[in-house]
Amino acid sequence: MSLLQTAASDYRQPAATVAALRENAQALDRDRQRENGQLLRLSLPALAIVVILIVAPIGWLFSLSFVGADGGFSFENYTRIVTDGAYVSIFATTFQVAAVVTVLCLLLGYPVAYVLTILPDRFAQALMLAVLVPFWTSLLVRTYAWLVLLQRRGVVNDTLSMLGLIERPLPLVHNMAGVTIGMVHIMLPFLIMPLYASMKAIDGNLMRAAANLGSSPVHAFFRVFLPLSLPGLIAGAVMVFVMCLGFYITPALLGGGKVQMIAQRIEQSVSLFPTWGPAAALAVVLLVLTGGFLLLSWLIVRRFSRGE
């Protein structure tokens, strides 16, 4: 007897028998399991890549950092980092540069992201392109471009002296100024994009409501817009800061050896020492410090958003 016939002939009878319901339940269970299996198989390539290219090398690096100069197990790579003042000052420089670059990016990037959100779509797209095109250009090309612009007889110095604003060329490159300028330029999109996303999500009526209730535009900005854009601001700032910590090419080229950041030191260690141990130990310390910073900022954000 088919279900249809049962339903049509007498609607007061339950359409399905107990046995049929049990069978259905089992079939639905099997479907669910099959689906889970498929999801697992689909994510397998990605999982494999993560394990092979990230987890395994980091583990290998970690083990290398405990290999001493004589090839045996040793803590000497770590003791050197802690006791040698040069290493401590390199770490200090690294964090200092990262902090300065992050603050400058915030000051420069916030207005850009804000303008992007209030411009009509057509202009916003054009401006967004102006942010993105440099972002898509090779890092190396942009760094060399800054070298050309900022050097002793570069475009910037030539223009300034032509205008009579300076008598001698300004030292703009192969120093902290050059490193900072280059890094800010390269990091800006990483700040602008999350900031723009979070600003775009702010309901325009909120600013109208603030005005309607009596807020001047400036008051409404500080009381309503800024607090609501804070999640994007923090996300962007953390991203910029963390990326700065491990930055190699730009500080190396624009710093001209005078500004030493930790990534450069790691590269030097590889060529300086017979084993990879010292470099590996530096990398591990950088990784742990970066991880610690991320954890800290996550805790702050969580505390902050719960307070809201």
């Binding site: 309901d203 009526n205 109208r208 005005a211 309607n212 009596g214 535009p217 409404a220 309503v224 609501l228």
Partner: peptide, 20 residues
């Protein structure tokens, strides 16, 4: 007059309450 000097109350369609 700009909106903030009009002293007009308004209920917005999506309410526009400050979420923070």
């Amino acid at each position: 007059l700009p909106p903030h000097k009009r002293d007009i109350g308004m209920v917005f369609q999506n309410y526009a309450l400050f979420p923070h």
